[in-house]
């Protein structure tokens, strides 16, 4: 991280450049989603659009983290916090996988929708 006034003065140009790159990437993201000629994969939104959109977002996020948040030049302990935080976040996203390994099992009853119906008449013997 730039610390002396001279270094900081120099670094400002870099910050500005990164800002401009982020602007450019934003325009690319929107263009890919809205301009028909740049439509990847199938016509309209599909998996490829999601992958491209998220890849561009990840690159942008990395630039913000590395340059603006000075992670390119940081102490090891900070990296540890980030890695743990990101792993925690990803594992929470990974929890959706639970729905695949333990899917909802629907009953096999042919009548009723699974909810108690108070108006249902119970015939007494």
């Amino acid at each position: 991280m730039a610390d002396t006034p001279e270094e900081i003065k120099k670094a400002q140009k870099k910050y500005l450049l990164i800002g401009l790159i982020l602007f450019a990437f934003t325009i690319v993201t929107v263009a890919v989603a809205t301009v028909p000629a740049l439509d990847f994969g199938k016509h309209g939104f599909d998996t490829w659009d999601a992958i491209i959109g998220l890849c561009i977002a990840s690159v942008k996020a990395t630039l913000v983290a590395l340059i603006f948040m000075h992670l390119n030049h940081e102490k090891k302990s900070i990296y540890l916090f980030i890695v743990l935080g990101v792993l925690g976040g990803l594992s929470l996203i990974g929890l959706t996988g639970w729905a695949f390994i333990d899917p909802i099992e629907y009953g096999t009853a042919t009548e009723g929708n699974g909810f108690f119906n108070p108006e249902m008449v119970i015939e007494e013997e």
């Binding site: 916090f81 980030i82 743990l84 935080g85 990101v86 925690g88 976040g89 990803l90 594992s91 929470l92 996203i93 990974g94 929890l95 959706t96």
Partner: peptide
């Protein structure tokens, strides 16, 4: 704090 925030938003994105 930011690490905990990553997990908070990670949960919501999930």
């Amino acid at each position: 704090f930011l690490a905990s925030e990553v997990m908070l938003f990670g949960g919501l994105f999930s």
